[in-house]
Design a protein around this nucleic acid. Structure first.
Lengths: 251, 251
DNA sequence: CTGCAAAGAGGCGGC
DNA sequence: GCCGCCTTTTTGCAG
């Protein structure tokens, strides 16, 4: 086995390999369309039965990060993949992708190659997102009174050994309030987080006298979670969504 | 705007459109390689700046599920995507992907089309996995004494309002034990789960007299989690990995 | 580097 | 459909 020149000996003849790595084509994503089957070993063992696939190789030797994704005709998520830093090797009759440091390996046997092409990958566009949790939390931090009148923020992302508390606050009675923010829906997992943080605050000598309680802030609460919340005297829910915090809509 | 025949008017002339949807090509994944920029709106708002992309359209009208993935030269995960059930529409100068029911929309303006191709997608290969959590749990369920001598399973996936408990057990003293299994590493999130379940068991009249305690089973424990566990008298950790439970290695 | 939680999470199984 | 959780999660961020 040796470093390659992407493509199995069978699938790509020497002259086609020149095509793949032609002069001046320093940045390329290799796109293979084929009928193939595959084996992955590493974090688990997996076998992908014969089927039609589109394989994207973001080859590190030509501008990519070495990641590989193998897509079938269905699903958003790939059937197989390899992380950044993967190297493409060659065996007699199949493709081998290997990430030695991680102990991962993906082998693909191509029964029929429908097409191969290289896509330029000189330019990686920037991605900007609006409306993610960070922004929701930002707006909330500017208007903590929207959560509860008289609420003041002591610290954002207050770090405890149990994890970071989104907003550590004091209420109008100067008692301690831990606020957990969810941009979309609050479920049991959110409640577990808040309880975990609260439990820790109650253990801390500097906070336990402030009788910490918790507030879950989200636009929506899952029904079973609401039922569990009703049993929690020290945790409450405040319904607030992104659209409730538009800067041009003060109340 | 009208249903299409994938491709923007600008990028794909009428004759090339015939190529895309040629007679008898009923199952196709459309692969576009291009320099383009994109906008997504739906669950958030996002803008992807101009860059080189490979777009896979698993068109529902031709054997796919309607999902779309947009890959740049880096990262395993796509820059943008659309879920199954997305329809491809046409605007004057760009591609439009829309999932009306979900209120999601992805628009892509192609500056330069490097290549387009259709990949057959008749056959979707089956994917089998070995070594996932389910299998780990299966093996553990066959040998609960590996967790602790005398441990018996009362029920697997015992459902509580707080969520399913992996293994509900009784120990040699007939006291109740909730076991949470992690195939890889156990972190604070695992501890939160177990505590949540335990708390619920303690509330249940039929179990509270059995003095429920918890065991976290995993091949590895994160250090801060271990520190927190040391403060939990009723929760312990048992180190067991997949390889410790090989069927041909009884002890 | 580790730790921690979000993600436009996705996908699966259960009810 | 909702619900709960695992994922070869991946990605990003902070200490």
């Amino acid at each position: 086995m040796k470093r390659l020149s992407p493509g199995s000996k069978r699938a790509f003849e020497a002259e086609s390999r020149r095509q793949v790595f032609g002069a001046g084509q320093s940045a390329q994503v290799l796109v293979l369309s084929c009928r193939a089957w595959a084996r992955y070993s590493g974090r688990i063992d997996a076998e992908l039965g014969l089927g039609d696939l589109v394989i994207l190789v973001k080859d590190a030797a030509s501008g990519g990060d070495g990641s590989v994704v193998v897509h079938g005709p269905l699903l958003v998520t790939p059937r197989n993949w390899m992380p950044a830093g993967t190297e493409m090797l060659e065996e007699d009759d199949h493709l081998v992708f290997e990430h030695v440091a991680r102990g991962e390996r993906l082998e693909i046997w191509i029964e029929e190659l429908y097409s191969r092409s290289q896509s330029p990958s000189e330019l990686s566009g920037s991605l900007t997102k609006l409306g993610a949790e960070r922004e929701f939390s930002d707006r909330l931090a500017m208007h903590p009174e929207r959560i509860e009148p008289g609420l003041d923020i002591i610290e954002r992302e207050y770090r405890t050994p149990a994890g970071p508390i989104d907003l550590l606050c004091r209420d109008r009675r100067r008692q301690l309030v831990a606020v957990e923010v969810k941009r979309r829906l609050a479920d049991n997992s959110a409640l577990r987080q808040l309880r975990f943080y609260l439990h820790h605050l109650e253990q801390m000598p500097e906070w336990r006298r402030r009788r910490p309680r918790g507030i879950l802030v989200a636009p929506h609460l899952r029904r079973p979670t609401q039922a569990l919340l009703n049993e929690e005297p020290r945790i409450s829910f405040v319904r607030l969504g992104f659209e409730d915090l538009r800067t041009d809509q003060p109340r």
